[in-house]
Write a protein that binds this DNA or RNA. Structure first.
Lengths: 126, 126
DNA sequence: ATAAATGCCGTACCATGGTACGGGGTCAAG
DNA sequence: CTTGACCCCGTACCATGGTACGGCATTTAT
């Protein structure tokens, strides 16, 4: 049985973050039997889930839905969310790759010619 | 000579966004000679620059610095910013690729076995 | 000439994901 | 028996990147 501080430490988040997730309905708020609330392994798992799903690019709102799916065993919807997220990730990856590639190109040009206008700045149209 | 509305339209942003950038010091606020402010090609170029640099993942604060570099012709600093941005982009790209790959894997597993617990949700530790 | 569309300006508000603060309570060690 | 380290709760605040609103002036089209 953990206090909020131990729970937070176990998942490497701040105490305030735990409370924030509680307010958002992502974590349950155990009843306070005489003041201090107690948390168990389920809470640790849940909190770790939130952080992992966040790392996979899900927003807190989406994570809330994923948590709900667990109860309903709704694979279909879970796959749907996963597919949507995969597509969004692919779009974003391509965007970032393009940004990286053009910046690389510009940095190389800039390196090659130190006089005259800076290609990096030029390219953006300044 | 453009009004703020035309400028915004020319760069496909909202009027409020232009004003927001002005407040942030990213765009100049021309003197209002008798009420209506007028904008020129420089402003169009500058505004487009902001949007392109944003697409390259620069924050508005970084963009402010890039604009400053234009005046000082500071290639060194520009390259520094570009390198920093490239590195950040690469880190982010790898993170997103990992997220995508694990989601793909999970979606495939989930697809394969429609009974039992959902691997997508399981994997996150719910 | 008049009504609709813009412009100006200041201020407030939005979402997202937290972080901080202040006042109070409880508990264990020194 | 007091000091310090937690806890609780509510509320305010932060950064980021905008978006909206309201009142008033001006401009543009009919």
């Amino acid at each position: 049985m953990l206090t909020i501080g131990k729970l937070a430490a176990a998942c490497d988040v701040g105490v305030e973050t735990v409370r924030f997730y509680q307010r958002k309905g992502l974590l349950e708020t155990p009843s306070s039997e005489g003041g201090v609330r107690h948390y168990g392994n389920e809470d640790v798992r849940r909190l770790r889930f939130i952080r992992k799903a966040q790392a996979a690019g899900f927003s807190l709102a989406e994570i809330g839905e994923l948590i709900g799916l667990d109860a309903s065993h709704d694979h279909t919807r879970a796959r749907e969310l996963a597919r949507t997220r995969i597509e969004a990730l692919e779009v974003r990856i391509r965007e970032l790759q393009q940004a990286r590639d053009s910046l690389r190109q510009l940095a190389a040009e800039c390196e090659a010619d130190d006089s005259g206008p800076c290609p990096i700045l030029e390219s953006f149209g300044v």
